[in-house]
Design a protein around this nucleic acid. Structure first.
Length: 716
DNA sequence: AGCACGCCGACT
DNA sequence: GTCGGCGTGCTC
């Protein structure tokens, strides 16, 4: 809302302001079209609904609205809502004197709606082209994209870029078959292990829409259990959508669905399938030829017809968060879809995120859990090695491996493979109490404290305040230590210690899918653990406290998730399955692993977050950019009255040529970041305010934008 | 981002 | 008078 007309007009050579206003009015009248244009540059227009509302495919916020175009008669039939179009857009060649001529550049867009009249004052340009008659943007998908854009303070065009895959002509030309008949409702299968499992399936099959947070028992049955939930939904005549974090779990669900439903009943939507294949599968879904979908995060927008169930597996995995603006998260988008479509919702995981716990706590979803007896029957025995023991352990210091781990590995290798989980390198060191390992947090905003180079005191990574004369609120100690980073050398040494056993490694570059059930050391980074035939005999989870020292609110949750992810592949306690975790046994995530109680862990974390005003109990957004841009943005934004701004603080400068993390500033640039938090319920207002402020900045021109991220992941 | 409009000073 | 530089604001 900028109305600074007076500044420029008032001085025009002799003419008074009234005169100028008259001139402007006259010009406007000269430009104004006849009420209903019948022709456009001599060409005939569509007789019915001659105006097309078009979403121009540019991610710029101040263009996040529709533009009206005239529909030429020859495009009338194909210019239907939802199709891709090309239009001329830009300040090309409109002059007062000459009227309109060809101008602007051709850009892509979506035809959103056909209307009888435009409320735009001025001559309409015509649609240049209808790219294809395929109505890719259904009203449901548009509504969802709109809701996601609002939730994340992003533009509709950005969301559509994620939601609608790039067109591929050949895939489009190929026809799609008729929808398959609905299958019969499934038997409950291994869902009987959960008290409310069969009930959940029955509700789906009956066409109802239950919502559940499901804590899956360790082991390989989860994929088939998801398959049965999908089958139950199909049996009710509705569609189902499953989103998993990566290609490997997608393949597992894909296989389960094929076994349960047969060929051709579902689509697999993953990024690595290639453009043509991906678009063909997506079209089959849109056209209703398949009613069930499994895929990775882009599939969260899949246009499943009559969506009856959405499923997200392992929502704690970071790849559920899209790394393109506006960074939507699969769990949040699927929550939106379940709510909008009045469908069922199933969040499943071996572990439990704080967000999942909140869904249960708030009553939005019901828990599906196994009894303690069931858990004990399936889970391995977990043993811990703390720092104290490690220090007293001569052998450990020599070989960098505690005696207990030696024993367990040796015993395990007698009758099967042994998994060794080693954290990846590259965690930023943070400060923690030297005595009790409590992470050092800021007194004012509870952000993480960092030792900055050059600065003597500790500095809060959120609000930038220096903290002096601090002592640990837990144990009173004044001594701090840096959280040092673990190494994979331990695993190599381990391999040398058991020369008779083959060593296989699975990690970033080379990920193994499965390993045989014969004795072997399997060294893996978290998330890359192969499944062992018959389960691992044992697992060693090394350098646990390096994981716990990560600069992230979710460090504890994430460590537990990764430990459980590895331990879930180990044989059960009755079959001798044993897990050794090298971490202080008093720490909350370690205790949760020992008791195999991820839900209890998440519930306690949630209580802490509520107390400290952390997400997801409050809503946070990060605003980053150059110091100037962030300051200007914050100065210009009209934030909700209950918003609290933390910072801004400088972000670490990324060295040129280094691979940078998502969301980090461009190499070499000095950026700052402010965090804004609001209480529960003000999230939508915050997103709207951020979006408005950003739009105003961009429209003013010249001003550099800031990066806005709602629900930032790495908030220290 | 790109482009037109319109104000202003400089120049034939 | 007329040309062209650049600061603003709009794009159907």
């Amino acid at each position: 809302m900028s109305s600074e007309d007076g500044t420029r007009g008032g001085d025009a050579g002799g003419a008074g302001p009234e005169q100028l206003a008259l001139i402007r009015e006259a010009v406007k009248k000269a430009r104004a079209p006849r009420a209903k244009p019948r022709t456009w540059r001599g060409a005939a227009l569509a007789k019915e609904l001659p105006v097309a509302r078009v979403l121009v495919d540019k991610g710029v916020l101040h263009l996040d609205r529709y533009f009206d175009y005239a529909v030429p008669e020859e495009l009338d039939a194909v210019a239907q809502p939802g199709v891709r179009v090309r239009v001329r857009f830009g300040a090309g060649g409109r002059t007062v004197r000459e009227g309109r001529r060809e101008g602007g550049s051709l850009i892509d867009g979506f035809l959103v709606e056909r209307v009888a009249e435009s409320d735009y004052v001025g001559p309409l340009a015509a649609l240049a082209q209808v790219v294809s008659p395929e109505p890719v943007l259904s009203p449901e998908l548009l509504g969802l994209a709109r809701a996601v854009a609002d939730r994340y303070a992003g533009s509709l065009a950005d969301v559509l870029q994620l939601a609608v895959p790039p067109r591929h002509g050949r895939a489009e030309a190929a026809g799609t078959g008729a929808p398959p008949p609905a299958p019969a409702a499934p038997e409950p299968g291994s869902w009987v292990r959960y008290a409310r499992g069969p009930e959940f399936l029955r509700a789906l099959a009956a066409g109802r829409s239950p919502r559940a947070v499901w804590t899956a028992l360790p082991g390989p049955d989860w994929a088939e259990e998801i398959g049965r939930a999908v089958q139950a939904t199909l049996a009710s005549g509705r569609g189902a959508l499953v989103v998993v974090p990566a290609g490997r779990p997608a393949a597992r669900v894909d296989e389960a669905l094929r076994e349960l439903l047969g060929e051709g009943q579902h689509a697999l939507l993953t990024a690595d399938a290639g453009q043509e294949r991906r678009y063909r599968e997506w079209l089959a879904v849109r056209r209703g030829a398949v009613r069930a979908v499994v895929g990775t995060r882009a599939a969260m927008f899949a246009p499943v017809r009559n969506l009856g169930l959405v499923v997200v597996w392992d929502d704690g995995d970071a790849s559920h968060s899209d790394d393109n603006a506006p960074f939507p998260h699969v769990r949040e988008v699927l929550e939106l879809r379940a709510t909008r479509d009045k469908g069922a919702f199933l969040l499943g995981s071996w572990s439990c995120t704080v967000e999942a716990a909140q869904l249960v706590e708030s009553g939005w979803a019901a828990p599906i859990v196994a009894t303690r007896e069931q858990v004990r029957a399936v889970a391995p025995l977990v043993r811990t090695v703390g720092d104290g023991e490690l220090a007293r352990d001569e052998a450990a210091r020599a070989a960098r491996l505690p005696s207990l781990a030696w024993q367990v590995a040796r015993d395990g290798l007698r009758d099967g493979p042994v998994l060794v989980q080693v954290p990846r390198r590259g965690y930023v060191p943070r400060m923690a109490c030297a005595q009790c390992r409590e992470p050092a947090r800021c007194r004012h905003c509870a952000g993480p404290l960092e030792a900055r180079e050059g600065a003597g005191a500790l500095v809060c990574a959120w609000c930038g305040r220096e903290e002096e004369g601090r002592h640990c609120p837990e144990c009173g100690s004044r001594r701090l230590r840096a959280q040092v980073v673990g190494a994979r050398r331990t695993a190599e040494e381990l391999g040398r210690a058991f020369p008779a056993v083959p060593v296989r490694t699975s990690g970033r570059e080379h990920v193994l899918d499965t390993v045989p059930g014969t004795p072997a050391l399997v060294v893996s980074t978290p998330g890359a653990e192969p499944v062992a035939e018959g389960g691992y005999a044992a697992a060693l989870l090394l350098d646990g406290w390096a994981m716990l020292g990560r600069p992230d609110l979710r460090a504890g949750e994430e460590a537990l998730r990764r430990w459980i992810g590895a331990a879930a592949l180990v044989r059960n306690q009755g079959a001798g399955g044993t897990v050794v975790v090298v971490a202080e046994p008093t720490l909350r995530p370690v205790q949760a692993l020992v008791r195999w109680d991820p839900v209890g862990h998440a519930v306690r974390e949630l209580a802490d977050r509520a107390e400290l005003g952390f997400p997801p109990v409050s809503r946070m957004a990060a605003v980053s950019g150059t110091a100037q841009a962030v300051a200007d943005f914050l100065g210009g934004a009209e934030l909700p009255s209950d918003a609290e701004v933390l910072g801004p603080v400088p972000l670490p400068v990324v060295e040129a040529g280094r691979a940078r993390r998502v969301g980090a500033p461009p190499p070499g640039e000095a950026w700052e970041r402010a965090l804004i938090r609001v209480p529960p319920g003000s999230g939508a207002a915050l997103a709207a305010a951020l979006k408005t402020a950003q739009a105003a900045r961009m429209a003013r021109g010249g001003g550099e934008g800031v990066r806005i991220r709602v629900d930032p992941l790495d908030i220290g």
